[in-house]
Simulated scan of single mutants.
Amino acid sequence: MNSLFADKQPITIINTFGEVDYIPDFFNNSDSDAFLKALIEDIEWVQEPIWMFGKKIMQPRLTALYGDPYIPYRYSGIEMTAHNWIKPLLRIKDEIEAFCGSEFSHVLLNYYRNGQDSMGWHRDNEKSLGENPLIASVSFGIDREFQFRKYEDKQSKKAVNLTHGSLLLMKGKTQQFWEHQLPKSKKIKNPRINLTFRKILG
């Protein structure tokens, strides 16, 4: 870890069959507020259809992909073409890369407008991400509970409350052995934006 981030000590969420670390205050409140506003206003959000149980439905959230425009990203029957980086994303990317000591080619953004927007159980295990990808997940906006469970043991669960300005790192064999989701919540009325930085191999 870069010595400049000595005050940002990770909290270990998972340390068996993968590694997940959480830094709740990676970005301060002032910067996080500014990033949230800029991303809501400046990102080219879309709502994509996906296939679930043989039916085509609209995803319960808005999405966008930024990064190398010549490398598409495919998941769940969707092929996304990346927009060019914009300044707020590059600022966030620079901070994350300095902390992780790794470079990322793309960021997949999800805009959860309220508690009725969600993400179902899945793994980020596309071949284009490589065998053991590093996924750096940044959250801005209202706190949301993020859940993990063992892929082959659905009863083995863990949860973490992702706060405004937080960073979650999924490393090693996490995507092989664990799946994750962001469940719905009737209590939540405010928005949250999540950015997952990744390296797409093409």
Rank of each mutant, 00 (worst) to 15 (best):
S105V: 06
L90Y: 00
K150R: 15
N114T: 11
V107D: 00
Y151S: 13
N114M: 09
R149V: 10
F140Y: 06
K150P: 00
E131V: 12
L129W: 08
S128Q: 15
K93T: 05
R113E: 10
W121Y: 06
L129D: 02
H106L: 04
I135F: 01
L90E: 15
K87C: 06
N84I: 01
S118T: 05
D117S: 09
K87S: 14
V138T: 12
F104V: 00
D117W: 01
L89D: 13
A82E: 07
L89Q: 06
R144W: 07
I142P: 00
E95Q: 13
E97K: 07
W85F: 10
R123H: 05
N84V: 01
N125E: 01
I142T: 15
G115V: 02
F99L: 12
F140K: 00
R123Q: 15
L134G: 07
A136L: 12
D94Q: 14
L90Q: 14
F148S: 03
I92S: 07
P88G: 11
D94L: 12
F104M: 05
L108M: 10
R113V: 05
F148A: 03
R149P: 07
H122C: 10
P133A: 00
Y112T: 03
G115N: 02
P88I: 13
L108S: 03
K87H: 11
A82F: 03
C100G: 07
Y151R: 04
E95A: 15
I96D: 09
P88S: 10
H122L: 09
V107K: 05
Y151V: 14
Y112W: 03
V138L: 10
N84Q: 15
Y112F: 08
G101Y: 09
A136P: 05
I142Q: 15
G115T: 02
E131G: 00
I135R: 05
K150C: 13
D117P: 02
L108W: 04
R149N: 08
S137L: 01
S118D: 07
A98W: 00
R123A: 14
G141A: 08
L108D: 04
A98C: 11
H122A: 11
R144P: 12
L109V: 02
Q147G: 00
L134A: 04
H106Y: 03
E97S: 14
S137Y: 04
Y112A: 11
Y151W: 12
L129R: 09
Q116F: 12
A82G: 09
L129N: 09
R113S: 12
Q116T: 12
S118G: 01
I92C: 13
G141Y: 07
N84A: 13
S128P: 02
G141L: 06
F104R: 02
Y112K: 04
G130K: 07
E131R: 12
S118I: 02
H83Y: 10
D124T: 02
D124M: 08
D124F: 07
Q116N: 15
N110H: 14
G115P: 03
F148T: 05
I86Y: 06
V138F: 04
G141M: 05
V107Y: 01
V138C: 08
V138H: 02
C100D: 09
